[in-house]
Amino acid sequence: MIEVQNLIKLYGSKRAVDDVSFTVKKGEILGFLGPNGAGKSTTMNILTGYLSSTSGTVTIDGKEILEDPIEAKKRIGYLPEHPPLYLDMTVKDYLGFMYDLKKIKLPKKQHIEEICQVVRISDVYDRVIKHLSKGYRQRVGLAQALLGTPDVLILDEPTVGLDPKQIIEIRNLIKSLGEKHTIILSSHILPEVQAICERVIVINKGKIVADDTPDNLSRAMSTDHKLIVRVDGPEAEVYKLLSKIPGMEQVNTLGQREDGVYDYSLEGEKGVDMRREVFKRLAERNWAILGMRSSELSLEDIFLQLTADSAEDTRANLGGEK
């Protein structure tokens, strides 16, 4: 559905987007993840034809965005980082204008009302946008993107500035939209991407540093089989017992959590699953396991790891922003 090839965008000598290529299949929800200033918005602006790339091609459903812009743009609904709202218009007038602008053929009144119901703005339909809260404005922006039910939705940080309840609502909405539309959404919030997206592209300093499903990413990055166990039992003896398990390479006590309850981190040989053995042995001694989890990396860790090279720069940038 979306094909991006060797996209490069130069701002002077700075490479905002550096040789980015990816394809998105029909019906896929792709998450675009990266720290602030990584090039997410720039990439999205190029995908929607707002900016031109320095080189590279973007094809939407077979239409090149620069060669056949009108046909390509017809297929895209775009919610930029700042929703493009005319503050002095009512929601009704604004959506009517966007409907005309996009030259949509569906029955106007009915179509707009349907979308208002989907994003739940029917109750502010006749209000002037200026007087709406941030959450409502964001939803009006989303409604505008949904007009004409385009095949492709490009959403730039759609949940930014919303309260937790609204965030969950919008996430669920995007998920349900993913059944009909191909969606690209950007975010710097990891759990969000993990919750919504089937596929994640991590972008840093204009380059793609990872492209996989959220699960695969965490699996690929967890190098050794590590477990963290919480056991109710005398520390020294539990430690001794755990160390004796065949295939165990390292046991560390992580400290006392409750009265008589300790956490241990276990590191086994590669490819050895120790979970059953750990359970059996502790059960024999009647020491209860209060918790056990494999210490797979969370998306957060992966993200930090992938973007670690530029950690120094990021820190410098953050200092600058403050």
């Binding site: 602006n45 929607t48 034809g49 707002y50 812009p69 009108i70 046909e71 743009k73 017809k74 895209i76 775009y78 930029p80 700042h82 493009p84 709202l85 005319y86 503050l87 966007m98 602008l101 996009k102 030259k103 505008q144």
Partner: peptide, 14 residues
């Protein structure tokens, strides 16, 4: 200023 040009320039019009 209000970034509404983003809506106009990404709409299917010349």
């Amino acid at each position: 200023k209000h970034k509404t040009d983003q809506a106009l320039l990404t709409a299917p019009i010349s």
